[in-house]
Lab assay of single mutants.
Amino acid sequence: SRHTFEINGERWTVEGVSEELKEILRAAERASNDEAERLLRLALKLI
C-alpha cells in the first residue's frame, strides 16, 4: 500500500509498506527533528 508523509517540511511517498512501518512513519511526522531522524533510520532498516 502507498503512504504519504511529511517530515521537516519534506513530503515522501512510499509504496508496499507494512502497517508497522506506517506506524513508525506517522510517529516520525509528529516527532522533533532529532527523534524523527532516529525513527527514519530505524524504518530504513526494516525496508
Score class of each variant (00 low, 15 high):
Ser1Gln: 14
Ser1Thr: 15
Arg2Gly: 09
Arg2Thr: 14
His3Phe: 15
His3Cys: 14
His3Gln: 11
Thr4Arg: 04
Phe5Gln: 01
Phe5Ser: 01
Phe5Glu: 00
Glu6Phe: 15
Glu6His: 09
Glu6Arg: 04
Ile7Thr: 02
Ile7Pro: 01
Ile7Leu: 04
Asn8Ala: 07
Asn8Arg: 03
Asn8Lys: 05
Asn8Asp: 08
Gly9Thr: 02
Gly9Ser: 02
Gly9Arg: 01
Gly9Pro: 01
Arg11Met: 15
Arg11His: 11
Arg11Gly: 04
Arg11Leu: 15
Arg11Pro: 06
Trp12Met: 04
Thr13Ser: 07
Thr13Asn: 04
Val14Arg: 01
Val14Thr: 04
Val14Asp: 01
Glu15Asp: 10
Glu15Gln: 10
Glu15Lys: 05
Gly16Thr: 09
Gly16Cys: 12
Val17Tyr: 06
Val17Asn: 05
Ser18Gly: 08
Glu19Ile: 07
Glu19Val: 07
Glu19Leu: 06
Glu20Gly: 08
Leu21Asn: 02
Leu21Glu: 02
Leu21Gln: 03
Lys22Glu: 13
Lys22Phe: 15
Lys22Thr: 12
Glu23Val: 10
Glu23Pro: 01
Ile24His: 02
Ile24Phe: 04
Ile24Glu: 00
Leu25Cys: 03
Leu25Glu: 00
Leu25Pro: 00
Arg26Asn: 08
Arg26Glu: 11
Ala27Leu: 12
Ala27Ser: 09
Ala27Lys: 12
Ala28Val: 06
Ala28His: 02
Glu29Asp: 04
Arg30Lys: 13
Arg30Glu: 11
Ala31His: 03
Ala31Ser: 10
Ser32Phe: 07
Ser32His: 10
Asn33Thr: 14
Asn33Arg: 15
Asn33Tyr: 15
Asp34His: 12
Asp34Ile: 12
Asp34Ala: 12
Glu35Ala: 06
Glu35Gly: 03
Ala36Pro: 01
Ala36Glu: 03
Ala36Arg: 13
Ala36Asn: 03
Ala36Thr: 04
Arg38Ala: 10
Arg38His: 07
Arg38Asp: 06
Leu39Ile: 05
Leu39Tyr: 05
Leu39Pro: 00
Leu39Asp: 00
Leu39Lys: 01
Leu40Gln: 01
Arg41Gly: 05
Arg41Pro: 00
Leu42Tyr: 11
Leu42Glu: 05
Leu42Pro: 00
Ala43Trp: 05
Ala43Ser: 02
Leu44Gly: 02
Leu44Met: 10
Lys45Phe: 13
Lys45Gly: 10
Ile47Glu: 01
Ile47Lys: 02
